[in-house]
Amino acid sequence: MVTMKRIHNKEDIVQIGLDLVLSKGFNATGVETILKQANIPKGSFYNFFSSKEEFALAIIDRYVADRNELFFPIISDESVSPLERVKKSFEKLIAIFEDYDCSKGCLLGNLGLEMSDHSENVRQCLEQALEGWTTGLSGLLLQAQQEQAIPANLDVEMLAENLISSFQGALLRSKIKKSPEPLRNFIHFYFDIFLVGKEEQ
């Protein structure tokens, strides 16, 4: 008889919880469900987390760390132009979304919709994560601007934030439509139309 290995490591529980929340949503993922999936005794959850809110903060931190690790080879590849690296970072996220049959989406957007009005700590953590994403993109966009790949009069921080906001909206639409088409349109409009042809503007 095969027995499941018990998980006693906090990081393992965070990863299992992250996967569950991405699939089911935060409020629909009960502590009992996490404990069962992790195969740990009832009540052990609170040995690691003082509350479910603290658990939410932990899965956000894990998600951001995973995304930073995912993005690093893309954004650090100096053989590719800065604007192309921005494009490739979004295309990587879209590919992951397609691999999950247009489900799950982005934890930051999902929790933003579900939790921002109910937990100030979670809202602030999400805002910090999105600000970090914005900072990373704006750095690449500034390089693109210095190379005259995008217009000099663009506010790169505002552009970075708008890219993320537009991506999140397209992601939500793709989840509802069960099609990556809105995300592909996002790529097309920004990187094939809006941010090209500087000399014609």
Rank of each mutant, 00 (worst) to 15 (best):
N110R: 12
G25V: 05
G136E: 00
L18W: 05
K87N: 04
M1A: 14
V156G: 01
G25P: 06
L141N: 05
F186Y: 00
S103G: 13
F189V: 15
F97M: 05
K92C: 11
A38L: 06
T29S: 05
V14N: 01
H188L: 11
L93S: 07
G139I: 09
R173H: 13
F49D: 01
I164S: 11
E91Q: 14
I96F: 01
L171A: 00
S138R: 00
L107M: 00
A149S: 14
H118Q: 15
L22Y: 09
K198F: 05
M1Q: 12
L83S: 11
L195K: 02
L70Y: 12
L195G: 01
K24F: 13
K42L: 06
V80C: 10
L93H: 00
G139Q: 12
Q168T: 04
Q15H: 11
C102E: 00
E120T: 04
I74F: 13
A144E: 09
N47R: 04
C102V: 06
G43R: 02
I34G: 01
I176A: 11
R62M: 08
M158N: 06
E11R: 04
L93Y: 01
M4P: 07
L163S: 01
F45Q: 02
F167M: 03
F71T: 09
Q145V: 11
F49R: 03
L35T: 10
P73F: 14
F48K: 06
F49W: 02
N121V: 10
Q128D: 14
S165T: 13
Y100I: 11
A160D: 05
G132E: 14
D101G: 07
G132I: 10
I13D: 08
N110I: 15
E200I: 07
D12Q: 12
A160Y: 01
K198V: 15
L93R: 10
I7Q: 11
F97D: 00
L22Q: 09
Y63R: 08
